[in-house]
């Protein structure tokens, strides 16, 4: 069990067995997505609870990215509903949608920073769109966000093409956090980073969750991330969520893919070292 969760449960009087009573931030119900004849997701349901870091795994091509894009409204769904903060995104008025959009931040897999804008301007894009802030304050907030994601201030005036892979991820995270969202989606945040950089990034996600009260939905393949920061893990397979639960729960699952993923050679080594660190 990651260290922050028991703490959270004690203080809010919630227990793991009674997960249904925790506030649900994102609720996916019976979602079916198909491209032509090919059904990618079928009657998939998933809940994300306030304040948790949910790790989302699955073999390549099982539709992790499709689900993420469906939740964000980038891919149309055949049936089912997606609720964020209690708002059904299909029934929401434009006003409600805008309010929901302001509470959501997304880190795309390759950063998706606007190449024609500097890092600072990238961070200010959502601020300009939604808020009426004076320019000096916007500059200060952009630098604050940079500091929070661990980038030096001189990165602010650089263009994305001048940044390294790890810095692009951090800058993109700063943009995702520009409006102080309640829910952030991270698409493979540590892919393409070296192990030390990836561990730093995991630590950063946890710190931000603690300071800003974020809820994090993280698509990842990184076993280190799953073991070290995720409170809960959901596994996608067979067009729906196969299992969800803590790392310890995953160890009990008998599904062959889950078994080889969490009890494979690499996983065992990481698990042992992670446990050694805790003790």
């Amino acid at each position: 069990m990651p260290d922050s969760s028991p703490d959270l449960m004690r203080q809010t009087g919630e227990t793991n067995s009674d997960a249904g009573t925790r506030p649900v931030v994102l609720s996916v119900r019976d979602v079916t997505v198909a491209f032509g004849e090919k059904v990618v997701l079928e009657n998939l349901s998933l809940d994300v609870y306030r304040g948790e870091i949910l790790g989302f795994v699955g073999a390549s091509g099982t539709g992790k990215s499709v689900l993420l894009r469906t939740v964000l409204g980038l891919v149309p769904k055949k049936s089912g509903s997606v609720e964020m903060f209690g708002v059904d995104l299909d029934d929401a008025s434009e006003q409600e949608r805008v309010l929901v959009d302001m509470r959501v931040g997304v880190l795309f897999q390759h950063g998706a920073l606007f190449s024609a804008l500097t890092v600072k301007e990238n961070i200010q894009v959502p601020m300009r769109e939604y808020l009426d802030l004076p320019k000096p304050l916007m500059d200060e907030l952009a630098l604050l966000k940079l500091e929070m994601v661990g980038l030096p201030p001189d990165a602010a005036d650089k263009f994305p093409s001048e940044l390294s892979g790890g810095m692009i991820k951090r800058a993109a995270l700063a943009r995702a956090l520009a409006l102080d969202p309640d829910l952030v989606f991270l698409d493979e945040p540590t892919s393409g980073l070296d192990p030390i950089g990836a561990a730093d990034f995991d630590e950063l996600v946890r710190t931000l969750r603690d300071t800003m009260g974020l809820t994090v939905y993280m698509v990842t393949h990184d076993l280190d991330s799953l073991f070290s920061v995720c409170d809960r893990i959901a596994v996608l397979g067979g067009k729906k969520v196969l299992v969800d639960g803590t790392v310890d729960d995953m160890m009990q699952v008998e599904d062959p893919w889950v078994k080889s993923y969490f009890r494979g050679k690499r996983a065992r080594q990481i698990d042992l070292s992670a446990r050694a660190e805790v003790n």
Binding site: S4, D7, L8, Q11, T12, P23, V24, V25, R50, G51, F85, G86, V87, A92, E96, L99, V100, D182, R209, D210, T211, M212, G213
Partner: peptide, 20 residues
């Protein structure tokens, strides 16, 4: 951490017009 979440909780997660 939980404390901050409680501050944010003053607007309940399930009420969409909390900003009003």
């Amino acid at each position: 951490m939980t404390g901050l979440m409680l501050t944010k909780d003053t607007a309940d997660a399930s009420s969409s017009n909390s900003d009003n």
